[in-house]
């Protein structure tokens, strides 16, 4: 199985919905998966910009974060074995955007899907030595079992949707 195939298989096992999309079709996919209001950080895809979307707030204030239902961010690398995506901290606020809303939509370039945890940590090691200050390996929604049974949506998102961008 290709890494992308096993990545999406892992997502399915985690009950994390996913979509594959080209850059051209991305807006249509986002129309479906963004539950408004949406806050976002730039997706870092060449030739695509969120500034054209009026339903998305970039550089959100704390109030925007609190009021939004969906947080849209880029993510990568992704880890095929685990169905994990890595959210990188940046000045555009990817970390809070991916954390504060009910739903996190993570956009992953196909080429960023790595087979294993070890490969991902290797890549992160290089990135950290290059100045990356925060990386969260996120797998599925936030969860707690502290209230007597398993509940999704503890302090972080209750649902995660992953979009894999083909050809990137």
């Amino acid at each position: 199985m290709s890494s992308v195939g096993s990545f999406t298989a892992s997502l399915s096992e985690l009950d994390v919905p996913w979509t594959r999309s080209t850059v051209d079709a991305l807006d249509g996919v986002l129309d479906d998966v963004l539950a408004p209001p949406t806050v976002a950080a730039p997706l870092g895809l060449d030739g695509y910009s969120l500034t054209d979307r009026s339903d998305v707030t970039l550089d959100p204030t704390p109030g925007d974060l609190d009021g939004a239902t969906t947080g849209l961010t880029a993510a990568g690398p992704a880890i095929a074995d685990y169905g994990s995506v890595v959210v990188r901290a940046d000045a555009a606020g990817s970390e809070p955007v991916s954390l504060y809303c009910e739903r996190h939509v993570a956009v992953v370039a196909e080429s960023a899907v790595l087979p294993s945890m070890r490969a991902a940590i290797g890549e992160l090691g290089d990135a950290i030595r290059d100045g990356l200050t925060g990386a969260v390996v996120a797998t599925g929604p936030s969860a707690t079992a502290d209230m007597g049974e398993l509940v999704y949506g503890a302090h972080g998102p209750t649902e995660v949707h992953v979009v894999v961008v083909e050809g990137r």
Binding site: P62, A89, D90, G93, P96, L124, G134, V137, A138
Partner: peptide, 29 residues
Amino acid sequence: GTGQDITSYVSLLTPPVDTPTLDFDADET
């Protein structure tokens, strides 16, 4: 530990973290 292949979040923080500060009272980053 809990029998999960991996927990929801494994954070690798190399602080100070390059993420905007959040002032909820002033509603400012």
